[in-house]
């Protein structure tokens, strides 16, 4: 385990002991295994074309703009690499795998306690007879959420991030390998409850869905703008509690549109089922399109 951040604690449920997943690769004992496995050929699929053009060594571009042989061994290397490039490489591979298999993947993000798991359980009950579903559950510890999902009869895999505050694309790749979602299925990825960090990490999903419950503040889209900017959809959950809360729905939607003019908004209650039909219809349409695209590719 890494003594710096403890990230070696992260594990994917069902992994063998030696297959302990180290989502961050700074674990000193295993070096860069995954970098070498796949080389850099996947760079082509992603939006980092500059990877190919750089890496030149430029002498004479040092701090003083000169290079005098013998005076200093220092040199400047221009690399222009995206810090998230490695994560984005994995995300691109996940996206390609999902497209090949016609899987419609959603990354559910929210604060803890917004009702993500209850939403998923009700969704699973409503859709499981119509098409295959699978769930990846991200939490720091415990498999409580995956247990709740499995109780509905659909496959779920728990990923514990240890001290990590978000799922990254490498963890999701490992989880997809083990879970092996069926062709033309819907894959829900329930991220760690956190409105900050998961915004930065693409997992390969079709959409991020941000869930905000009306028992939270209507100003959250402005307080945590990165997440609402990254999300394609905002679900206002627990609307059955609106009569008991001072939550201004229209104001909340206006705030969300301010950080993301294109965000789709759904209002529902995962407990009472109010507004749920629209959510289910949206998922079914997304799955239909993903499946149709797979047929076209195939």
């Amino acid at each position: 385990m890494c003594t710096v951040c403890g990230c070696g604690d992260a594990k994917v449920e069902g992994a063998k002991v030696e297959g302990h997943i180290h989502p961050h690769s700074h674990d000193h004992d295993h070096g860069h295994d995954h970098s070498h496995d796949h080389g850099h050929s996947h760079d082509h699929d992603h939006s980092h074309p500059h990877d190919h053009d750089h890496g030149h060594i430029h002498y004479g571009q040092g701090i003083a703009g000169v290079h005098v042989p013998g005076l200093s061994q220092s040199r400047i290397v221009q690399i222009e690499q995206d810090i998230l490039g490695h994560n984005n490489d994995f995300a691109g591979r996940n996206r390609a795998w999902l497209a090949r298999h016609g899987v419609f993947a959603l990354n559910l993000v929210s604060s803890p306690g917004s009702g993500k798991t209850t939403l998923l359980c009700r969704t699973a009950e409503a859709l499981k007879a119509k098409f295959p579903l699978a769930v990846i559950e991200g939490d720091q510890q415990t498999s409580f959420d995956a247990d709740r999902i499995r109780a509905t009869g659909i496959p779920a895999l728990q990923v514990n991030t240890g001290k990590g505050c978000h799922l990254d694309a490498h963890m999701v790749e490992s989880a997809i390998e083990r879970l092996a979602p069926a062709d033309d299925s819907v894959l829900f990825i329930e991220n760690v409850g956190n409105l900050v960090c998961p915004a930065a990490f693409d997992l390969g999903e079709a959409y991020k869905v941000a869930i905000l419950s009306v028992t939270e503040g209507e100003d959250k889209p402005l307080k945590y703008p990165d997440m609402f900017h990254a999300a394609g959809m905002m679900i206002l959950n627990k609307i059955d509690l609106l009569p008991y809360c001072d939550f201004d729905v229209e104001r909340c939607i206006a705030f969300a549109r301010r950080v993301n003019p294109d965000i789709v908004v759904l209002k529902l209650s995962a407990r009472s089922g109010e507004g749920f039909d629209e959510w289910l219809a949206w998922i079914a349409e997304g799955r239909r399109r993903a499946a149709a695209a797979r047929v076209k590719v195939g």
Binding site: S25, H32, G85
Partner: peptide, 17 residues
């Protein structure tokens, strides 16, 4: 605190380079 993950990403790039 995802800066820790990002920083590890930086170090990984340095090692590769």
């Amino acid at each position: 605190m995802h800066e820790m993950s990002l920083t590890e990403g930086v170090v990984r790039i340095l090692e590769d380079q």
